[in-house]
Design a protein around this nucleic acid. Sequence first.
DNA 1: ATTTTTATCGTACAGCGGTACTATGAAAAC
DNA 2: GTTTTCATAGTACCGCTGTACGATAAAAAT
Lengths: 218, 218
Amino acid sequence: MPKRVDHAERRAHIIDALVRVAAAEGLHAVTMRAVAAEAGMSLNLVQYYFDSKAKLMHAALERLEQQSHQRWSKRLADLPQPPTAHAFIEAFLAEALPTDEASRAFHLVWTSYAVLAMTDRELAAEPFVAGPDRLERQLTDVLSRAQRDGALAGGRDPAAEAARLLALSHGLGTGVLVGQRSAEAAMAILRAHLDQLFDDRLVWSAPRSPVEVTSDGG
Amino acid sequence: MPKRVDHAERRAHIIDALVRVAAAEGLHAVTMRAVAAEAGMSLNLVQYYFDSKAKLMHAALERLEQQSHQRWSKRLADLPQPPTAHAFIEAFLAEALPTDEASRAFHLVWTSYAVLAMTDRELAAEPFVAGPDRLERQLTDVLSRAQRDGALAGGRDPAAEAARLLALSHGLGTGVLVGQRSAEAAMAILRAHLDQLFDDRLVWSAPRSPVEVTSDGG
DNA sequence: ATTTTTATCGTACAGCGGTACTATGAAAAC
DNA sequence: GTTTTCATAGTACCGCTGTACGATAAAAAT
């Protein structure tokens, strides 16, 4: 056996095993032994590369976050540059939906972590609030620009629309995960929503002065 | 000690203890012993009233479902009869959001169960797909009627709107649970969505007979 | 060549979890 | 009044889980 080994690669290998176990049998089935077996190594090695289970769990969450970011970047890069706001957001929403098996696994494990974080003060809740918050700001920016360009349907509040998009995609994602709806059906709903949001067929019935839609934009 | 005891009451008491434990520490913290302690009885009694942990978990899920149904019925009954479609749906959405502590506990535990059901074939996935399906049909009916009455904004598909409302409320609910958004903010977004859905200020660009504004005094 | 470091293995230990077993007073049935 | 049933209690057992503790062989360092 060689002496020097790429620790980062080893750790990634183990975490991938963890995600496979969690996706197949749930986060509660993630034990040091199960992960070791899935990774094809001994229990001791998992201990060796991650001191404790808690650290392993944290590392896995971090990796999931990074991977998600990477996939999102890749999808964005695949868009014709510069992408329209519509295309940009549609790509975003497509990524937020569990379409293929890999995506399904990711979303399932991510959701499991999120539920865990609701009660475990130990587990950083940061990714589950700061992450969406950042996305929401990003979406808000894009929508604001789109609004300036006149691409948005009238009377929309970019921040509110961003929040709505995020909540909607998450709700649909859960529906797909739970087997209530197919990913295609969910995507169709999202596209319809987007079409409405970017639709120029919808106009105000009265000239725009008197109408005040949302309250504050805090 | 008396001999005859109301089993249903006993079981309900135990299940309530389970829900408290699950809401406070997560579903993974639900052990026979923890539930017994929370219920103020011995481990053996929990075994006595529910043969196994699996049956206890199933019973708890059933009770949650029933309670949810009851709360929803009560909320509906509190509405002025007959309720407008707008009021009906707003009441529904308000119930779907974790507003007070009790509601938060319910939604947290329910979500935990849903995540569990994603991997445990044993745990009936039925409540998490048949339930929302039924709600969706109900909403679709209400929206269809509203559309016939001309209360809906133009060009909407009741079924799609029902799915959208359900997904949106669920996504917002998760956001509240996770601490990303306050229940009030979530409710504001939902109300805005509803206002749009029922809004007569939004019409097709092609001129249309003016729809009157139902100023919701109810 | 010896010593140290590193990656790996096996195993042991303590705690907890679900379940099963037995016991015991008290009410109900007879 | 005896027997049966019921609600409750205590406890023991076995398996699993995280963690700790050596052992070992190979590569690196000296």
